[in-house]
Nucleic acid binder design. Structure first.
Ligand code: FES
Ligand code: FES
Lengths: 132, 132
DNA sequence: GATATATACGACATTTTTAATCGTATATAT
DNA sequence: ATATATACGATTAAAAATGTCGTATATATC
């Protein structure tokens, strides 16, 4: 439990790779996939999603690829996680109220407190710190 | 991602319930299961595990049940989570070195930093705070 | 203009993890 | 003896994560 997904892991690897060479250089999904031994198609989808989210920029055609677009020190880890994986909650009932324990639950408030702590922690870390 | 398991959820519900009435009172798995609408057998196993871990005490036979044994303000959330679910790492390679990216990985160190932050956060919260 | 290479993306299949159930044994109050 | 509770390994079911496939589109190069 409390694991991050491969998708996020791959996204971080890609960002860190792009961060490590000139910012205007284009890097293809294939390049990163073979270099770090990760499934190319899956990585490609993740990169496409990050492009939709404005984190990176995509250039099509041969000699195309991706490059970093956003200021990574302006994106919190919380926002990054939520862009890729949706709302961040240790339990589903943190957001939706369709929990099993309709009215009987006795830990909703305490769990929310823990969750707020966690969200807060990730809100205070930037993507820059992780990928630099 | 970053979700806690039902097992942990059920454990917290049970602890909070026991916390809310006299500490020497015995509560059966069935009682808690029906009260909060959770699978009895699954809850029972979780309670048994907590008993093995010394968090609660089990009394067999009719009129038996469980009651809190440990000082909940001496158990960190990190320890509690790890007792129930094993080592706490956002990625498997935090502990074991059998990661896919044998030598090529570029985010190991950064991820460990995030992970340490998270572990630290849970190490600073006690079970008491959550269940009181 | 044909070709090769890259992104774009929905649909499907596989694998892994989590959740729940089953069956049986043991303890003990009544 | 009986009923009720814990104890626990084994199995099944459900859900989520991971990976693959097929096809479309853009564009640099020849
Ligand atoms: S478990 Fe969902 S509200 Fe408590
Ligand atoms: S992903 Fe495991 S070491 Fe980087």
């Amino acid at each position: 439990m409390l694991k991050i997904t491969r998708k996020v892991e791959y996204a971080l690897i890609a960002l860190r790779h792009m961060q490590s060479n000139p910012l205007d250089k284009l890097t293809s999904a294939k390049e990163i996939a073979t270099l770090y031994g990760i499934p190319q198609q899956l990585l490609a989808k993740t990169l496409q999603q990050m492009a939709r989210d404005g984190i990176i920029e995509a250039v099509q055609g041969p000699a195309g690829g991706y490059r970093i677009l956003a200021k990574l020190d302006r994106i919190s880890l919380k926002d990054f996680f939520e862009k890729l994986e949706g709302p961040l909650g240790m339990m589903d009932c943190y957001f939706d109220s369709d929990c099993i324990q309709i009215g009987a639950c006795n830990i909703r408030i305490p769990i929310q407190r823990i969750n707020d702590n966690m969200r807060n922690m990730f809100a205070q870390m930037t993507l820059q710190e992780v990928t630099q």
